[in-house]
Each structure stands twice: as structure tokens, then as C-alpha cells.
Design a protein around this nucleic acid. Structure first.
Lengths: 228, 228
DNA sequence: AATTATTAATAGTGTTACTATTATATTTGC
DNA sequence: GCAAATATAATAGTAACACTATTAATAATT
């Protein structure tokens, strides 16, 4: 995969940044260290001032790239979903049969990310943790509808649509392909969170178990047609 | 139900408040109006200062009842889960067969709340909306493990345990009763949120559809034993 | 060498969560 | 009915935060 991706750039909605962080060294340091710091201290305790100090730059310089903390988070999570979408399409494209195709898709989106380091300044493993802990906060706000209209969630939405299409390909009589797709994505983040902090509320205690749980759940439903 | 509940008090962890808001008129107004205001403006924009102004009292008086905004949110959501647990136990206790019992449980926890007004100062319908929009924020923080140790999520956890027990009663060979129970609860909040803000990501467009979706999903899995 | 773009430094604004202190009501015990 | 205890209100203040404005220094381009 490394070879292939060298020429690939994950593109996110360009309204999410003022200046493309990929376009400069400072920009890349902003991305790299915001991932490290948000993962360390959590989004609430993370500030542009602290980030500036960490990268030996200045708060105001960070504001040249991102107009707010919220937009930086949306940039990071969008990037993550874009990267996941890329891996999903790449891994499933060659599979002709709907069942193994969906199975592969579930595997990709529910497993925790292994260290890839395809993009030098982006630690995908930590970014995955950030998505588990912080993504919900990016839409659980009063501004969600405007943000949505501005297209800040479009990659995420496209990803869910893709999964729902694969579900329909397995069973086009099933009545809830979109709900099931969104349950797989969100539910998998949630199971990973429970695994870390509420282990008494989940049967998933190892990284690969959410994949097994959702694969089992989805295929049992879809092979069993007593629809609505 | 009204008659019965007149003498019932939903009790939450008493470390969540400094002074019991149920013990005074001011306390009840704090609860009543914090529900209205958080629902209106969202948790981020809600402040004790604004609340004080609204109830013609003072910011510092609110701090006599709750030591922080976060604890007030935890109080409200705990109360909600306690109330839901009560309704769950009440509605399922008399059902001997595991299947209809679980079906009733899923119905209770996945449906949006109808106006009950059993507790004069608590609008359960709005509280349900608050839980949908804000509950995740109460655990998606760096302090989650300490909060958990202090017992601030115990009612929520007990509720999930109860549901998982009902799942086991239907199929005690199923390998993921806890994960399934937590998926039903969290997933249902999520589907209700999507219904309001991302209708292209769900098949649930009416209030009762999450119930149907999860009932279908759960029973199809449990009647079908190809376990792990 | 001059122009331009980028980055850094400094200072400031309004708001927030929360605390401390004092003053004023209200309730309670006798 | 009145003093003591308690609850509430008012005021002021702190440190931190998100974000802005302005100017200074540096680097890249022409």
C-alpha cells in the first residue's frame, strides 16, 4: 500500500482550513502535533496556545491555518474518514461477490487502525483514537445543521452510503440498510470506547472483537429474510 | 402510572449534588429550567449565570446545589436513566416469557419519551432530547475513569446489565449480550439523532422506527443460533 | 536589492467556569 | 415572638479560554 499512496492525497472540504496545512512545513507540524496533543490531553484541554508552544511557533500562526479549534477537529476527523474510505474502496473493489465484499468492508471500518505511517506527519493509529473519543463532539452541537449544509460531514456520509449499498447488494429486501450501516460505524467506535473505559458493558475485550460482533450480527440478519 | 409514582423518588448518586435539588423550591426550579435551557441552547452555551437570571436567582446560588455544570448534566442524565430503568422494570416484571419480555424492554428504551409529567418540575420529553444530544459528552472526557469510579454512571450500567440479562434469557448461547445491550441503548440515541439531523443516514424517519429496527435486528440474531 | 508572503511576538477583548465575601431574607427552635 | 441558624442573593474577582488586531522579523521570490 505504501507505494500506491505516495502519490495520493486525502482531500477534505477546503472550507475547513484557511491555508492548506499540507502546503507547508508549519502546516504539517500543526497537524502532527495536534494529533499527539489532542490524543494526550483530550480536545477540551487542547488549546492553540499550547500547540503553538509545542511546535515552537505561535498561537496566531496556527490561526492562519485554522479559524477555530472546532474546524481543526473537523479537519482531522474528515481526513480520517477520507482515509478509511480510501482503504475501504481499495480493499473491496476487486471482490465480486456481495457477501465477502461486505465482510471485508465491516472488517476495515470496525477494526482499530494498525500503524501505517503512510503519511509521514499523520499517526493514523492515534487519529483513530481521537475519532473514537472526540468525533461525536463535532456533530453533537447546536450548529450541526449549518455545518452539515456547509458539507463538513460529506465524507462521513459518503462512507455510510457506500456501506449501505453493500448491505443492499447482499439483501435488497432488508428495510434498514442505512440504519444498519450507521450502526456499524458509530457502534464500532462505541464498542472500542467501552473496551477501554467500561469493560463491564461490552463483550469486546480485544481489538478484533468488534469486527466479529458486527460481522455476526449483520450476516445473521441479512441471511435471514423475515423482513418488514 | 401516575398514582404509583407519586410516592416514588428517582435517586441518583448523592455525590452529584451538594444540596439535593429535590429538597427545596429553588432546587426544583434549577432542575426545571436547566432542562428547558440546555434543550434550547445546548450544553455548551448554557451557563449558571444565564440560569440564575432565568430563575430570578443568582449564579452563586446555583453553585450551592451543583459544584459544576458537568455534574448538573450528570445529575440530569442519571435521573433520566433511573427513570427509564424504573419504567423498564415496571413494564417487564409481570412478563414471564423471555421473548415478549425482551421485546417490551427494547420498546421502552428505544422509543422517544412521551409527555408524562409525573414529576411536576421535570419535562421527561425534553430530558430525553437532552440525553440524545448531550449524554455522550458526559463520558467522552479524559476524566471518564475517575467519574466512573465515583459511581456516576452506575444507573446507566445497571440498565445495560438488565437488558443483557434479558438477552441471555432468550438465548444464553449468544456470545455478545453486553455488546448487543449497549448497542441498543447507544444506537437508539444515535438513530434518533440522525432522524433529526442526518436523515440521509438512517431509515428511521418516524419516532417508532428505531424500536422496529432494533427489535428486528435483535430477534433475528437471537432466533438464529450460529454462534461463535 | 527590493518586493512580497509567511511566520512570530505582543497585547488585548469578551466570555467562561468557578470562588470568595458579604448582605439579606427565610425558616426554625424555643 | 424573637434570636439563631440556615438559605439565598448580590457583588466582585480570578485564571483560563477562544479568538482578533497589529506590528515586527524572517524567508522566498523577482
Amino acid at each position: 500500500m505504501e507505494r500506491l499512496l505516495e502519490s495520493i492525497k486525502i482531500t477534505v472540504n477546503d472550507k475547513l482550513y484557511i491555508k492548506d496545512p499540507e502546503s507547508s512545513d508549519l502546516g504539517k507540524r500543526i497537524i502532527e502535533h495536534s494529533i499527539l496533543m489532542i490524543n494526550d490531553m483530550g480536545f477540551e484541554n487542547f488549546t492553540f496556545r499550547k500547540l503553538g508552544a509545542e511546535i515552537k511557533s505561535n498561537e496566531s500562526s496556527v490561526y492562519r491555518y485554522f479559524e477555530s479549534k472546532q474546524k481543526l477537529l473537523l479537519y482531522l476527523t474528515s481526513w480520517y474518514w477520507g482515509w478509511l474510505e480510501y482503504r475501504l474502496v481499495f480493499a473491496t473493489n476487486g471482490i465480486p461477490d456481495p457477501e465477502p465484499k461486505l465482510a471485508k468492508a465491516i472488517e476495515i471500518v470496525t477494526q482499530t487502525t494498525v500503524k501505517d505511517w503512510v503519511f509521514a506527519h499523520i499517526n493514523e493509529e492515534l487519529l483513530n483514537k481521537i475519532v473514537i473519543n472526540e468525533f461525536s463532539k463535532s456533530y453533537l452541537t447546536k450548529e450541526v445543521d449549518t455545518k452539515n449544509k456547509e458539507g463538513y460531514f460529506s465524507i462521513y456520509k459518503r462512507l455510510i452510503t457506500r456501506i449501505s449499498e453493500m448491505i443492499k447488494a447482499v439483501d435488497n429486501h432488508y428495510g434498514y440498510p442505512l440504519s444498519l450501516a450507521s450502526t456499524i460505524l458509530e457502534g464500532s467506535l462505541h464498542q472500542h470506547f467501552l473496551k477501554e473505559h467500561f469493560s463491564s458493558l461490552t463483550d469486546c475485550h480485544k481489538d478484533e472483537q468488534p469486527t466479529k460482533y458486527f460481522t455476526d450480527l449483520v450476516f445473521n440478519r441479512l441471511n435471514n429474510q423475515p423482513n418488514v
